[in-house]
């Protein structure tokens, strides 16, 4: 199972693309995904925070991931 992860703001700058595909065997939970992304892109660990969104909702570390999910990294927001 592979996963596509959408990237916004500074996470897109760090990774260098707006969508990254993690090939199989891909992480199976939000926590594993974050750990894998930080391993590949250590600069993600320097951010004030980095959340993961699954299907437009903030997700907790133990949430399972599926190939059909819309997944995104969410660096610190700054609207308004």
């Amino acid at each position: 199972m592979s996963l596509k992860v959408a990237l916004f703001g500074i996470t897109r700058d760090i990774v260098g693309t707006s969508v990254i595909e993690l090939p199989a065997p891909a992480p199976t939970t939000v926590g594993e995904l974050l750990a894998e992304m930080r391993r590949q892109y250590p600069a993600l660990g320097d951010l004030r925070s980095c959340a993961v969104a699954v299907n437009n909702e903030y997700a907790s570390a133990d949430q399972p991931l599926h190939t059909t999910d819309e997944i995104a990294l969410i660096p610190p927001v700054a609207g308004g």
């Binding site: 703001g9 500074i10 700058d13 951010l47 004030r48 660096p75 610190p76 700054a78 609207g79 308004g80």
Partner: peptide, 17 residues
């Protein structure tokens, strides 16, 4: 989920990152 990048005379920076 909205992000803001400030542009200065000598570069840009993502706010609160």
């Amino acid at each position: 989920t909205i992000w803001k990048r400030e542009e200065y005379e000598d570069g840009t920076e993502w706010v609160a990152a």
